[in-house]
Design a protein around this nucleic acid. Sequence first.
DNA 1: CATAGATCCTGTATGC
DNA 2: TGCATACAGGATCTAT
Length: 296
Amino acid sequence: MPELPEVEVVRQGLAEHVTGRTIKKVEVLHPRAVRRNVGSLADELSGERIRCVSRRGKYLWLPFVGDQLALVAHLGMSGQLLVQPAQAPDEKHLRVRISFADSGPQLRFVDQRTFGGMMTAELVPDTAGGKVPEIISHIARDPLDPAFDKLAFTTRLRAKNTEIKRALLDQSLVSGIGNIYADEALWRAKIHGRRLTGGLSAGKIRGLLDDAVAVMTSALGQGGTSFDALYVNVNGQSGYFDRSLNAYGQEGEPCGHCGALIRRERFMNRSSFFCPRCQRRGSSPRPQDKVFRTRP
DNA sequence: CATAGATCCTGTATGC
DNA sequence: TGCATACAGGATCTAT
C-alpha cells in the first residue's frame, strides 16, 4: 500500500521523467479514475507544461507552468504511475493515458482496485509561501515536510478525544501515515494504538512522531534503490515487503524488543499488529466509557 | 462540531 | 473442482 515513502519514490521518478514536458493528449479509460473534476480532464490538461512534481502526504501533483493549475493524483491502494513507451501494450488496469508533445514515453495511471484517481485543481497559496492544490488544502503537512509544525501537531492531537492510531491515520492532523507505518511507529514508541490521545504526554507524542519519521525515512532509503528508468516503481507493495517490518504483518512472530508474540486485532475495518507486552493499553478508558464511568 | 463507522473496489487466498 | 467468503485499506460520506 503506498504510503509516504512509496509516494515519494514515485515523485522522484516522475520528476525525472515528466518535468518540463508538455501534455498533448489525455485518454481516460475508466470513469472512476477521474475524481472531483468539473470539466473534462483531457481538455483541461491539453497544452499544459509540467513545471515540477510535488507531494504532500500521499498526494502528488504536477503544477503547470504559470502556477495556476495542477494535475493531482492519489494512488489509493493499488495505483501506479508508470512511464512507458507508446508502443508498450496497455496494462490490464490502465485507467488514464497521458501523451506528450515530444516523442518521449507516456505517463500511465494504472489502478486495479480503483481507489486512486486523478483530477485537475487550482493552486492556492499555502502557509509557507508556496502553493497547494485547493482540493487538498485540508490535508495536513507530512512529518518530512520542513514546514511541519511539531508543536502545533502535539497540541491539536492532545486536544482530541480519540485513539492514537486513529489520529495518526487522520490526514488532516498529519499526512502520509497509513496502516503499516502507523503500526510500525507505535511499535517503536511502545504505545498501544487504542490509547487515548489526551492521555499521552507531549513528550510521548514527540517521540512517536520521531519514530514515524525514522521508520518512513528508513523505508524511503530502501524504496529508492529499486528504481527502473522506464518503470516508475510505485506499486508500494513491491518495495515495501522486502523491508524489515517489526509489527505489521508479524502476527505470531516474536517482538524485536521483548520476544513476546505479536498480536493482531481488528481496528477501523483493518488489521492492527502490536506487541502485547511492550504496547500496553493501560487503564485509560475507551471514549465511550467516559460517560458511563459510574460503574465500579 | 467532533467522532465513529460504513463504503467504495477487485484480485488473491482460504474454507467447505 | 467450484463456489462462497474473508481480506487488503485511503479517503470520503453518512450517522450519531
